[in-house]
């Protein structure tokens, strides 16, 4: 049996919790064989394959809820602080290169100090560095230098979540 190109890397990346990005040659191979991989992951491990326009990932019944919550907290505080700083937070997340020192400044001066200090991944500069390593390993950020990074398209998972969350709140408040 012949397997798609990069088969081994595709499987090991996805099984390692990575997002495969459109900029990665593996993405093309995965997209071309989407049906095969969807069936492969479902039949082999009962995982669901999610292929979006510009990234792909797999989901299992048991999910990394703690990490996801930490990532949401990070995006939420960062977006809030960027907006407070007079920036278009979405454009910044989409296109800007972030310096870790600047992130430290935002988090140290945030009015969400209590939430930040109570979160093990975000409580100080050292914890945040380790957290960025996790994000980098998962392809949620891409390190561009020792102390700099950009967000990959995987940010959309979390931004879409925020938009849906708001819609839920708006509908509870009775606003169309």
């Amino acid at each position: 049996m012949e397997f798609p190109r990069y088969h081994k890397d595709i499987v090991s990346d996805l099984m390692g919790g990575k997002f495969i990005l459109a900029s990665d040659p593996k993405f093309v191979s995965l997209k071309e064989s989407e049906d095969f991989y969807a069936k492969f992951f479902r039949e082999s491990f009962a995982y669901e394959l999610e292929v979006k326009t510009d990234f792909a990932f797999i989901l299992s019944y048991e999910t990394g809820e703690q990490l996801s919550r930490d990532i949401c907290l990070f995006f939420a505080v960062l977006s809030f602080e960027l907006d407070k700083d007079g920036k278009n937070f979405l454009e910044e997340i989409q296109y800007a290169e972030f310096e870790m020192d600047k992130i430290d400044e935002y988090f140290q001066n945030s009015s969400y100090a209590e939430l930040i200090l109570n979160n093990n991944q975000m409580k100080d500069s050292f914890s945040r560095k380790q957290f960025f390593t996790t994000l980098n390993r998962r392809n949620i950020i891409e390190k561009t230098a020792e102390n700099k990074f950009t967000f990959t398209q995987a940010y959309k998972v979390f931004v879409d979540f925020a938009a849906d969350f708001a819609k839920g709140k708006l509908s509870v408040a009775g606003v169309d």
Binding site: F57, I58, L59, G64, E65, A76, V157, A162, F165, K169
Partner: peptide
């Protein structure tokens, strides 16, 4: 999106979050 984040930050440990592998 910011509305969503502000609402989420009110009770971040009680909300459901996106699934990740």
């Amino acid at each position: 999106i910011l509305t969503g984040w502000i609402e989420f930050l009110k009770q971040p440990y009680k909300s459901t979050v996106p699934k990740i592998f």
